[in-house]
């Protein structure tokens, strides 16, 4: 196929991309330089909206929560996924098929639905978690999981981990199954126990998968919104506020399109930076 023909085939997709991604993105960027009143542009204010970032306490709190979410996501679902995949890889093909499918189910559940389900589990009045704790005699540990500032973000992160770890298992499992079996056979001949094989063969050879999952998780952690919105709306107080909820409230509830656009531009810059890092690192491998 000639270059000209190739571009002709690419053109429709590029036009759609320009119409639905490039133009709206530029528009949001343009919005950020204006003052707004009830969603109606007023005056060009230059960088005045950007200057508000420094004194916006909620922005910094939200950014901090996004960072915490990234760290927690890297710490737990990836680790759990790695361990479970390594254990599962030694089982029979049928067991692998069934168990990995079970692990993957939460990933297929929309986050809004996951939020509703876990909202019920965490509910302080009739929640399953408190009920379970009561039944096993640990009623003193029962709490208002999403209603307390010190537990809300962590409790929501558990939900995020629940929806993500199955994906990690599947990715790691595929990568483990592609490792040359002779490496493990040689280690067994040398008498290496399971954990040694895991540490010295499996983990090093899964670097690419870990890098991919880590960066994917970090990007997702900056973008997530639905789970928080259906469960806490960023509360109690600002305990689960993240950048996306701050953008939503500023845009849709306050009608301050200029500052909401600034927040969106910052969010976009962070996500694009993470994506660029991911792209470079994965290409370098």
């Amino acid at each position: 196929m000639s270059t000209r023909h190739a571009y002709l085939f690419l053109l429709p997709a590029l036009l759609l991309y320009a119409a639905f991604v490039v133009v709206p993105t530029l528009q949001v960027f343009a919005y950020s330089f204006f003052s707004w009143d009830n969603g109606i542009a007023q005056d060009f204010v230059g960088l005045a909206n950007y200057a508000r970032l420094g004194s916006d306490r909620v922005f910094w709190v939200a950014l901090g929560h996004n960072a915490i979410w990234v760290v927690l996501t890297l710490a737990f679902p990836l680790l759990a996924g790695l361990l479970l995949a390594a254990i599962l890889a030694d089982r029979t093909p049928r067991t692998i098929q069934i168990v990995s499918a079970i692990y993957f189910i939460p990933r297929t559940i929309p986050l809004v639905v996951a939020g509703i389900i876990w909202g019920w589990i965490y509910n302080p009045l009739f929640g399953l978690l408190n009920y379970g704790l009561d039944i096993v005699g640990l009623g003193q540990l029962a709490g208002a999981w999403l209603a307390e500032e010190n537990t809300a973000l962590l409790s929501l992160n558990v939900v995020g981990a629940w929806t993500f770890f199955g994906f990690c298992v599947v990715i790691y499992l595929g990568a483990i199954q592609s490792i040359d079996p002779s490496l493990y056979e040689a280690a067994e001949v040398d008498g290496a126990p399971w954990w040694r094989k895991f540490r010295d063969i499996t983990v090093p050879l899964l670097n690419n998968s870990t890098l991919f999952l880590g960066l994917y998780a970090a990007i997702e952690a900056m973008r997530f919104f639905d789970l928080i919105w259906v469960t806490t709306q960023g509360g109690p107080g600002y305990a689960t506020e993240v950048l996306t909820t701050h953008v939503y409230k500023t845009f849709f509830l306050v009608g301050d399109f200029g500052y909401a656009s600034v927040l969106s531009v910052i969010l976009l810059a962070i996500v694009l930076s993470l994506s660029a890092i991911a792209f470079r690192l994965l290409r370098a491998k």
Binding site: G235, P236, G237, L253, V254, G255
Partner: peptide, 19 residues
Amino acid sequence: PESMTQVLYPELQRLVGGD
């Protein structure tokens, strides 16, 4: 105003939550 309401909501949660 809406800008004030969006401060009032979380601050009331913090007030009654004892924070």
